[in-house]
């Protein structure tokens, strides 16, 4: 240990209490606290979106005429394609989780040998699909604004942009999380359970955001 390390007072404490590089998976007979905590937090996120759905349905019931006029401006086929992109990103995300669970960060085969892809390849694909979804939503927003549906135009605009906008912010948050997780895989010399756990909980979040979008799509675009 060099002298520059000597004065860092935490060195002894941190190395003595844990070393994430060791197979630090909690023994198999107990649930992973990070995963359970994430699911409990996601259930509170569900109630956040419950508030948004409640707002949407209340405004819809009080101004039904406005809804029939404004909702007709939605481009349902475009949103459907966007939805399919987001749902497929959930599948690629789950493939990345399977790779993380077998502690495989990188591909062992060719660039397009999907069966040998590691976590980073699958998560990069997920990132691209999620980014396409966000870009598609931006295009949709600009089209709707040009048709005079904006956040401040009327109750429909407020409800539409608040529900889909908060969902979009969640997707962007997930994209940032994917970058962090991919970065962790590159930083780690030995990809262990420390890295795998964070990859798995980010996938929980991603699946949750995906399911919320399916609910939003059914309510806003199908039910109108």
């Amino acid at each position: 240990m060099g002298s520059e390390h000597f004065y860092r007072h935490n060195v002894y404490v941190t190395t003595a209490t844990h070393a994430p590089s060791t197979p630090a998976h909690p023994t198999l007979n107990r649930p992973n606290m990070v995963s359970v905590g994430t699911v409990v937090w996601l259930s509170s996120e569900l109630m956040f979106f419950a508030g948004l759905f409640a707002m949407y349905f209340t405004l819809r019931s009080t101004s039904a005429d406005m809804w029939s006029v404004e909702a007709a401006k939605l481009n349902v086929p475009f949103a459907l394609v966007n939805t399919i992109v987001l749902v497929s990103s959930s599948f690629s995300c789950q493939m990345g989780v399977f790779a993380a669970e077998r502690l495989q960060p990188r591909r062992t085969g060719g660039r397009f040998g999907f069966s040998r892809w590691g976590m980073t390849e699958w998560f990069t694909l997920t990132f691209i699909l999620g980014a396409i979804f966000v870009a598609g939503q931006s295009i949709e927003y600009t089209t709707l604004v040009s048709e005079h549906v904006s956040l401040s135009s009327d109750a429909y605009g407020s409800a539409f942009y608040l529900t889909t906008g908060f969902h979009g912010l969640h997707v962007i948050g997930g994209l940032i999380a994917f970058l962090f997780i991919i970065g962790r895989a590159f930083v780690a010399k030995r990809f262990g359970h420390f890295e795998a756990t964070s990859a798995i909980v980010v996938s929980y979040y991603w699946h949750f955001v995906d399911v919320v979008w399916i609910g939003l799509f059914l309510v806003i675009y199908v039910l109108k």
Binding site: V40, S43, A50, S61
Partner: peptide, 19 residues
């Protein structure tokens, strides 16, 4: 006619089911 409570309770079922 009152959607806030209906949806909140319904999604509480979702919360319970999820956990």
């Amino acid at each position: 006619t009152e959607w806030v409570g209906t949806l909140a309770i319904l999604l509480l079922a979702g919360l319970s089911a999820m956990i």
